[in-house]
Computed example of a mutant assay.
Amino acid sequence: MPINDSSGMMTISDEGKLVVLNGQGDFLWSSNVSLGSNQSTAQLDDDGSLVLKSGPNGNQLWTSFQEPTDTYLTKMRLSANARTGKKRLLTSWRSSSDPSVGNFLVGINPSGIPELFMWYNGHPYWRSGPWVGQKFIGIPGMPSNVYLRGFSVQPEGDGTITLSSTVDPVLRFTYVLTSRGKLTEQFWDYEKGGNLVDIQKFSEGGADLNIRLAYTEFGKEKHN
C-alpha cells in the first residue's frame, strides 16, 4: 500500500522491527524480524544497504539487500531455487513517479544453464543467454571479461543459483530496472555529479539493455 502524502514515517517498533507507518499510525510494512524488545538499531551502510541490528551485540537481523526493489547495487545477491521456486528479484516501479510494484521482474532462471530473465506480467520477455563462466553469451557486445569486474553466477548447493557482485563499492555501479522494462547500467561520476552517457544499447524481444558510463570516462575512450 503506497503512502499518498508526506505524513509517512519509518521507525523501530516496540518489538524491535523496522516499520513504515502512514500518517494515522497504521502499519504498511515491517522487516518481519524482531528482538521482542526495542533494543535494535537501524543503520545505512556505505554500500547502500539499510541494516537492522540487535542492540547489545550489533548482530544483523535484516538488510534491505534481502528485499531488492528496482535497483541492483554492489554486494546484492539475486537468486532462484529450482526446487522450492523461491526467487529474489528486481521489481520495476509502476511508473517513473509511482514506486508501487510494476509489471517487470528481473532475476535468475535456474532451469538448465543459469541465465538472466526479464518477465512482463509473469511471462518471459527477455533473456541474457546462458552464463558461461565469464559473461552472458546472449548479450551482444558484452565484454568477455565481465567476470573480472566481480560478477559471478554460482550454485549454492541446495538448489539455489545466485548472481552476485563484488565490485569495489567506490566505483558505484548500479543496475536499474525501469518501469518500461529497460535494464540500465549506471556509473556515478563524482566530477559531473552523476551525469551519465549511454555508450551501448541492446534490444531483444522488445526489451532494451542500456550500458552507461560517466561522461568523463566516455571522453577518455573517445580520445584514446
Rank of each mutant, 00 (worst) to 15 (best):
N4G: 12
S7C: 03
M10L: 06
M10F: 05
I12Y: 05
S13H: 02
D14A: 03
E15F: 06
G16A: 00
V19A: 02
V20G: 09
G25H: 06
F27Y: 15
L28Y: 11
L28Q: 14
W29Y: 05
Q39L: 02
T41W: 07
A42S: 11
D46C: 05
G48W: 00
S49E: 14
K53L: 05
K53I: 14
S54A: 06
N57Q: 12
G58V: 01
N59W: 10
T63N: 11
T63E: 12
S64D: 13
S64F: 02
F65Y: 12
F65R: 15
Q66K: 08
E67F: 03
D70E: 12
L73K: 06
T74M: 03
R77V: 14
L78W: 01
S79E: 07
A80P: 14
A80W: 02
N81C: 05
R83T: 12
T84H: 10
K87F: 09
K87H: 12
L89Y: 06
L89P: 11
L90E: 04
S92Y: 04
S92P: 14
S97T: 05
S97L: 07
D98L: 01
V101L: 13
G102V: 00
L105H: 15
L105A: 04
N109L: 02
P110Y: 01
S111R: 11
I113M: 09
P114A: 00
E115W: 04
L116C: 04
H123V: 15
P124V: 01
Y125K: 04
R127G: 08
R127T: 10
W131C: 01
W131G: 07
V132A: 04
Q134F: 08
I137W: 06
G138L: 00
P140V: 02
P140M: 01
M142D: 13
S144P: 12
Q154K: 08
P155N: 04
E156T: 13
E156N: 15
G159R: 04
T160P: 12
S165D: 11
P169N: 02
T174H: 06
T174K: 04
V176G: 11
L177R: 00
T178Q: 10
T184K: 15
T184V: 13
E185K: 08
E185M: 05
E185F: 07
D189V: 01
D189E: 12
G194N: 06
G194A: 02
N195L: 05
V197M: 09
I199C: 11
S203Y: 11
R212Y: 06
L213F: 09
A214W: 03
T216L: 03
K222D: 13
